[in-house]
Simulated assay, not measured.
Amino acid sequence: MMKKRIQQIAMLCSASFLLLSGCGAKETSKSDGNKEKTYQIGVTQFVEHPSLDAALEGFKQALKDKGLSVSYDVQNAQGDMNNNQTIANNFASDQVDLIFANSTPSAQAALNATKDIPIVFTSVTDPVGAQLVQSMEKPGGNVTGTTDTHPDAIPKTVQFIDKYVKGNRVGMIYNSGEQNSVAQVETVKKAMKGTDLKIVPVSVSTSAEVKQAAESLVGKADCIYIITDNTVVSALESVIQVASDHDIPLFVGELDSVKRGGFAAYGFDYYDIGYEAGEMAAQILKDGKKPSDLPVQYPKKLKLLINKKAAKDMNIELNPEWDSIAEYIE
């Protein structure tokens, strides 16, 4: 009996030792910080088109490169303002760690929904005019991000049109309900001062109206200039078709639209401004920075891109002078 009792005690001690060892290992794991926090980020995007999609990819890559574990809830408003606000309200109710707003309408809706959750935007043309930030240098509040307006992009495009396009009538199709588009049209007008260029404006409210708007410019415009208007860019192929059918040079506001069939643009890669926005988000989530501490960032690179196939389709003769200032795609 005594021997059996000793064996039972030994087995009980052994089990207790293993249990304590296991508990000790678990506590060490916690104290070592091996359990990584997964951040919840709500992504709100106004419409789907290549530039905004590229910005989102850049944003995600930056956070990955910074070593953050992130769970994304990606929502697209499909160009509907009501959907846009509903998405933002849902993110606010869910108390996500950060909202990534990809476009001006998306950022405005997010700010309407919350003053507490950090908001990082990109693809916003005029952050101050859209009342997202107090100033570019000192945003204030809970919002900051990257703008898709390089200070030289519109002036250089206008200079190119003035120098190389025959005629002075510049057709512009835009959604007057998008604050970023109205701001860009005003910038175009300012850039045209001192030239004989004039705008032939056509306003649309949905992407379904874009083709008819483009057709209305035939015979009234010597070229067409599509700025970074979300509504129009989402239906850009219809404008490209009209421009090609009627030999109208089509200038666009970003490089992805050149790749889709626009003739030329002074622009930058939206992936890059999305990446910069992701770096800012990492500073907020990982380093404890406040959006108000982070100045709004401009695109860092600007280049002229010309589509040779589009030039042929629109009956545009390539000028040797462009070889020293432009990059070409076939």
Rank of each mutant, 00 (worst) to 15 (best):
E209D: 09
E237M: 14
Q283F: 00
S234T: 12
E237Q: 15
V233C: 11
A264F: 09
T231R: 03
L285E: 10
D229Y: 04
V210I: 11
G267H: 12
A214Y: 03
Y266L: 05
M280T: 04
V258S: 03
G219E: 08
V210N: 06
V252S: 14
K211E: 12
I226D: 12
L217G: 04
A264R: 09
I273P: 01
V210T: 13
Y270A: 06
L255M: 13
Y225K: 13
K220I: 05
A221T: 04
L255W: 01
K259F: 04
H246D: 01
E209R: 06
L285I: 10
A221C: 05
F263V: 13
V252G: 12
M280V: 14
A277D: 06
S238A: 10
A208I: 01
Q212P: 03
G219N: 00
Q212H: 10
K211A: 11
E279P: 12
L285Y: 06
R260K: 15
F263Y: 13
I248H: 06
Q212A: 15
V242I: 08
A281Y: 05
G274M: 03
A264Q: 13
Q241N: 10
A208Q: 05
Q283Y: 07
A265M: 12
A208H: 00
N230S: 10
V218I: 11
K259Y: 08
A235Y: 02
Y275E: 14
Q283S: 11
E254K: 11
A282P: 13
A214C: 02
L250M: 07
S257L: 11
S234V: 09
V210S: 11
V242R: 01
E209N: 01
Y270G: 00
A264T: 12
G253K: 06
A277V: 11
E276I: 15
I224R: 10
A214I: 02
A235L: 09
D269E: 14
V252M: 14
A208E: 09
D269F: 05
G278L: 08
S257W: 05
D247Q: 10
D247K: 00
M280K: 13
S216T: 02
T228M: 05
V233Q: 12
G278A: 10
S244W: 02
Y266P: 10
S238D: 11
E215S: 08
C223I: 08
Y270L: 06
Y266A: 07
E237S: 13
E254M: 14
V242G: 06
D247S: 01
S244F: 07
D272Q: 13
V218G: 01
D229G: 00
I227F: 02
E237V: 12
A264L: 15
A208M: 09
V232R: 11
Y266R: 08
Y225V: 12
Q283T: 09
A221M: 02
A277W: 04
E237A: 14
T231I: 07
G219D: 00
L250F: 07
E279M: 15
A208C: 02
